[in-house]
C-alpha cells in the first residue's frame, strides 16, 4: 500500500494535476468574450493593461486598497506560499546551495545552507500564521460565515495540515528528513527509477497531503491562481475613444 502511495500514485497525481488545469482552462476558452466589458478608467494600450494586471497579481492591490485587514493575511500567505514552493524546488535540487550557485563570489556553500534553512523556517511560520488568521476570519466574521461552504474551510485546513507537518519537521530536531534523502527519492520518481522512501512518517504524511492538494487543485476554487489572469483579461483591456468634434456646426473645434 505504502509502495503504491509513494511510488505509483505520484504519477497519477501529476497527470491529474496538469491535465486538470489544462482541461479547466480549455473549458474557459470555449466561451467567447462577446462584448467589451472593460472597466474604466481604461488602460490606454495593451502594455498598460498587462502591467495593471501584473500589478494586481503581485501586490493584491485591490485587496490592499479596499480591505486592508484581509490583505494582512492574504498577501503574506501567498508570498510565503510561492517562496516555499520555490524553496522546495531550489533547496532540494541544489541541497541548499542555491544562493551560493547564484552568487558564488559572495556567498559560501555553508552560508547558503544557513540562509536556506532560515528562509524556509521564516516563510513556513508566516504561511502557517497567515492561514490561521484567514481561517479565524472566515469563522468569525458574519459575512464570511454566510458566504462559506464546507469546502472553503477544508481547503484552509488542508493547507494548514501540510504546512503544520512541514513546520514540525523543520522546527523539531531530528523529526525531518535531510535535503539529500528527499532529493534521492524525488530524483528516483522523476527518472522512473524508484528509490527508497525516507523512513519518516511525518515526511510520508506531508508527501501524501501534498498529493491530495494536487488532486483537488484543478477541481476547486484553488484554480483562482489562473482564473485571475483569464478574468482580468476580460475586464482590463484598452479602449480607443471615438474622436470628438461635431460635424456641420458653425462653431468649430479646430
Amino acid at each position: 500500500m505504502k509502495y503504491f502511495l509513494v511510488q505509483i500514485l505520484p504519477y497519477f497525481t501529476v497527470a491529474l494535476f496538469l491535465g486538470g488545469i489544462v482541461w479547466r482552462i480549455w473549458r474557459w476558452m470555449i466561451a467567447r468574450i462577446v462584448h467589451n466589458i472593460t472597466l474604466s478608467p481604461f488602460p490606454s494600450n495593451w502594455v498598460a493593461a498587462i502591467l495593471w494586471i501584473l500589478w494586481q497579481m503581485v501586490f493584491f492591490w485591490n485587496v490592499l486598497k479596499f480591505d486592508p485587514w484581509l490583505w494582512v493575511g492574504a498577501w503574506p500567505m501567498h508570498v510565503a506560499l510561492f517562496s516555499i514552493l520555490g524553496g522546495h524546488v531550489l533547496g532540494i535540487y541544489t541541497l541548499g546551495t542555491q544562493f551560493h550557485l547564484l552568487f558564488p563570489w559572495l556567498i559560501t556553500e555553508a552560508q547558503s545552507e544557513h540562509a536556506s534553512e532560515f528562509l524556509g523556517t521564516f516563510f513556513g511560520i508566516i504561511f502557517f500564521v497567515a492561514l490561521v488568521y484567514l481561517l479565524v476570519r472566515r469563522l468569525t466574521l458574519t459575512r464570511m460565515k454566510v458566504l462559506s461552504s464546507t469546502s472553503d474551510y477544508l481547503h484552509l485546513l488542508l493547507l494548514l495540515a501540510i504546512s503544520g507537518v512541514g513546520n514540525y519537521m523543520r522546527l523539531v530536531e531530528g523529526a525531518g528528513v535531510t535535503y539529500a534523502e528527499a532529493r534521492t527519492f524525488l530524483a528516483g520518481l522523476f527518472t522512473f527509477n524508484p528509490q527508497p522512501f525516507p523512513d519518516n512518517w511525518f515526511f510520508f504524511t506531508h508527501f501524501l497531503l501534498v498529493q491530495l492538494l494536487m488532486i483537488v487543485f484543478p477541481f476547486s476554487k484553488l484554480m483562482h491562481s489562473f482564473g485571475i489572469m483569464w478574468e482580468r483579461w476580460i475586464v482590463n483591456r484598452p479602449y480607443k475613444e471615438a474622436p470628438l468634434g461635431l460635424p456641420g456646426v458653425k462653431l468649430r473645434l479646430d
Binding site: W28, A31, I33, I37, L141, K221, M223, H224, W230
Partner: peptide
C-alpha cells in the same frame, strides 16, 4: 456558459474572500 466567458469566469474564479460585501450598496 458556453457563450459568455465573463459568466464562466465569474462562476469559477471566486474564492469567497468576502471583500465585495462592504462595497456593495445593496448589502
Amino acid at each position: 456558459r458556453k457563450e459568455r466567458r465573463s459568466l464562466v469566469m465569474a462562476m469559477e474564479s471566486c474564492v469567497k474572500c468576502g471583500l465585495c460585501a462592504e462595497h456593495c450598496h445593496t448589502y
